[in-house]
């Protein structure tokens, strides 16, 4: 695979990624994650009281995710408030994160996760998942593993990792394709596979292999960020 991408990246090269933990003092856990120009922040509150009472689950805490693109995060001002798109992404993020969590210990409570996109340049949902998984760890929620997410794109016939905005709308050839994936780190358990566009079935294993490699790198960055907040706050 030798594709020349618009920003000069190789097919299996992500944009520069950064992670920071503990950015919101009032939250029980918080984190920021960036893919190049895509910036996501996440805050975790709880376990705390869940109202209305009929939503409570005696088997364990309820995970409640809210994803939102802030109005200044995109080129044309986005009308603030929930939308069809943000509700869908909140729900899939919830599904992507919940297999990693062990919430049995906290019956009848809720764990709230707020994800805000400060700057959007494609792959926002996976950036949000990466930030949220670090924030949940910092909030002291029992977890099986961290969750790492990355998007795979297709430029005509070639697979590329971590699409940016122009690649997401690359209509030439076979059309725009954006394949968002998330998995439990160091395992083969995928928790999010969301395909927007077209992809040949025989390309899916290749796409997942690409995602796998990228997730390993993301995991290292997440781990480092979590360990730094513990060691590095005394200056």
């Amino acid at each position: 695979m030798v594709v020349k991408r618009l920003d000069g990246r190789k097919a299996d090269e992500m944009r520069p990624i950064t992670a920071k933990v503990g950015i919101i003092p009032n939250a029980d856990g918080s984190a920021m994650f960036t893919f190049g120009n895509t910036v996501a922040i996440a805050a975790v509150y709880g376990p705390r009281m869940l109202h209305p009472q009929h939503m409570q689950d005696p088997k364990g805490a309820v995970l409640r995710v809210n994803y939102d693109l802030l109005s200044f995060s995109v080129l044309d001002r986005k009308k603030p408030g929930p939308s069809r798109r943000s509700q869908e992404i909140s729900k899939v993020t919830e599904w992507a994160l919940s297999p990693a969590l062990d919430l049995k210990e906290f019956p009848n409570t809720v764990v709230d996760v707020q994800i805000y996109i400060l700057q959007a340049n494609a792959s926002t949902r996976v950036a949000g998942i990466n930030a949220a998984s670090m924030a949940l760890a910092q909030a002291g929620i029992p977890m099986k593993n961290l969750v790492c997410g990355v998007s795979v794109g297709k430029l005509d016939k070639d697979l590329v990792i971590d699409v940016n905005d122009t690649e997401e709308h690359f209509e030439e050839g076979e059309g725009a394709t954006d394949f968002a994936t998330a998995k439990l780190a160091n395992t083969d358990e995928y928790t999010l596979l969301q395909l927007d566009g077209k992809i040949q079935p025989n390309l899916i294993p290749q796409a997942l292999a690409l995602a796998d490699k990228a997730c390993a790198k993301i995991y290292e960055v997440q781990k480092k960020a979590l360990k730094n907040v513990a060691e590095g706050d005394e200056k």
């Binding site: 856990g29 376990p47 910092q138 002291g140």
Partner: peptide
């Protein structure tokens, strides 16, 4: 020993 998080 957890570093942070809500009180349990």
């Amino acid at each position: 020993i957890p570093f942070s998080g809500a009180f349990i």
